[in-house]
Amino acid sequence: MRARVMAQVYRQYWRVNVLTTLEYRENFLLWFAFTFVYHGTAIAALAIVLHQFPAMNGWDFRDMAFLYAMWMMSHALHNTFFSAVGDIPEHVREGEFDRFLIRPLDPLFQAITTPGQIFPDELMLALATFIAATIYSGVTVNLLFVVFVPLIWIGGALIDLGFNLGISTVAFWFIRVDTLRWIVLQLEQEFTRYPISIYTRGVRLLLAFVFPFAFMNYFPAAYFLHKTNLGLNVPPAIGLLTPVIGIVFASAAYLFWRFGLNKYQGVGH
């Protein structure tokens, strides 16, 4: 019963999203152009640099394009389905969150299904980029690739969700978390763009086991590209663990969210 209601709500949520997008067509096109330019400049910058310097720790532009596409796909998947989690601090500040609490559905579910102007445009762009990068990088596409890559995307999206939810939960105490979110996003961009073997050992360990950005793209990409020197003493197959890491990380964030929810006392509206 509860599941059926949730499925209905979810369907309505996407209906409203699509209708909103159709209503504000020009604005949608402009934001799509922005997404395009955003990823375009990033890839162009990589191309220019690696045109001058043939390789970075054994990774050439073909490898880096695949690395980027891997991250882009997970990130787009997260943005498409969970970006509304990032609006929770605003709901808290405006007092709208209190309304979520007295409704009969799970507050997190309500937050995820707050309609906006979400459309799977970034996801399509990411998919196209990923296919292009896969062909360009010459990765062997076998059964293992076909089975694991989608799971890795989902795992990567869950890692992103873990960060997003964790930061949003901090808003229960601090109300405003825009700066924190901006910093984490900046770091995510930097840390997922290059092979982590360029960083010092401490940073590598941090990226692998504390803030698992390395599982979003570095480890999986290194596995499929047959890189042997990972920069850490781990077997290459660790890249296939991304789905597990994603579930663990998102679950940890969820526990933190439940904890924050229990402490939450409103902001005094």
Partner: peptide, 27 residues
């Protein structure tokens, strides 16, 4: 409403202005 356009211009400026990568590295 100009937010999206503005962001696009910022990114283009950073790239073509040589903030991300020095222009001497370009083709």
């Amino acid at each position: 409403e100009i937010s999206a356009v503005q962001l696009i211009v910022t990114w283009v400026t950073d790239l073509l202005g040589g903030q991300l990568v020095p222009l001497v590295f370009f083709p």
